[in-house]
Design a binder for these strands. Structure first.
Lengths: 209, 209
DNA sequence: AAATGGTTTAACCAAACGGTCAAATGTACT
DNA sequence: AGTACATTTGACCGTTTGGTTAAACCATTT
């Protein structure tokens, strides 16, 4: 008897996602995944052959989910400023709730960069189109001729880094969990303003130059 | 006969640093470290007891080296703007050359945040003092009353993230190594301007508000 | 109820791993 | 040369780990 697209398989995937996200490929144990899913270890191999393939499945699922969230906002029809504000708001919430996800992706790609090659084309996301759209909006809405990649990376950096580096920042500056929560909450306001100001300054420079 | 502070011990530490930086604690193999150092595996245990202690030594050394580089600039006597420019310039070079280091630190702290507790006090770096200094300079030199932590984290984010996320960015946007090198080179100019503009805008808001 | 085929389990395996140990080698001092 | 001590080595050990296998279980079909 099968529940929604096979119950056992899903239980395994959920457990695997949890363990892989927290401990990475090398830190994860097949036995731990089996325990978490409340099944016999052999079932992992029955459904996914081996650790590498199970990891690959988790990685692909995770990345796709993340990518669609990332691309979606910027492919919509809003002003660039609104997109930035929405992006910061939504992303900061999402990443705080899934603080492991981003680092999981980065580490997996550090180990083997070719992991992405295959799935990016399969995805309905078009990074070049995204940059093109940002480029046009920068020009049309703000009169700025700037490399859109630089802007987009700045945006990602300001949102993602503070979450990924949380333990580092918290240790160095002796910040309590409460102080840290306030810090993130503040960023929802600060980051968009920071970027908008930077762009306005750039715009002024351009007009002067 | 002993060279500069014991030759064998240093060879081990260099090899261990290399392997741990690239593969992390779980991915590293004692045998691989021994091979790289051209010594018998037992010597690792003779000098450092076990894997955990060897890792700890590498982590502490790496962090101290990094921290002194980080703190140094901002404790010096320059204008805030100059500090930011110097920081971006120096850090972007350093991190590009040691792209694994930052992620190594972040991952090690993700696994066990308490690693830093001990060594931060031993270091002659004072994070609170650093923030205080930035805070004063923001006020005195630019008339801005801003949380210095937010500014400092923004700076770190803009410099560190693009390097840590290199494989991610390179895959997503199909960037060649050459394009990537140009991208980083561009950032040496773009990031300081980006931050300065953002601050100027903030300054203006303050005066209006 | 017997047969069929997918699912689950326990027992097991070989390789890899961190770590130990006793012997060997080198070095400095008497 | 001989002793004492630190250094280095190879052989070995117990455990953990990813993976296999054969048997048991279970639902559906005939």
């Amino acid at each position: 008897m099968e529940n929604i697209t096979h119950n056992t398989e899903n239980r395994i995937l959920e457990a695997a996602r949890d363990v892989f996200h927290r401990k990475g490929f090398n830190g994860a144990r097949m036995q731990e995944i089996a325990n978490l899913a409340n099944i016999n270890k052999s079932l992992l191999h029955y459904y996914f052959r081996n650790k590498e393939l199970l990891f690959e499945k988790v990685f692909n699922d995770t990345f796709s989910q993340l990518a669609s969230k990332m691309g979606g906002i910027f492919m919509s029809e809003m002003t660039l400023i609104s997109k930035i504000e929405t992006f910061v708001e939504l992303y900061l919430i999402f990443i705080s709730e899934h603080s492991y996800v981003m680092q999981f992706i980065i580490n997996a790609l550090q180990d083997r960069p070719e992991r992405l090659r295959d799935i990016i084309t399969n995805q309905n996301i078009n990074p070049e189109l995204l940059l093109e759209k940002i480029h046009k909006q920068l020009k049309n809405e703000m009169g700025i001729d700037m490399d859109p990649l630089q802007l987009y990376v700045n945006l990602l950096a300001l949102v993602i880094f503070p979450v990924v580096a949380k333990p580092l920042l918290q240790s160095i500056f002796s910040l309590s969990d409460e102080r840290m929560a306030v810090f993130y909450e503040e960023r929802k306001k600060i980051v968009p303003v920071f970027i908008e100001n930077a762009l306005k300054g750039y715009e002024k420079d351009k007009k002067l130059g």
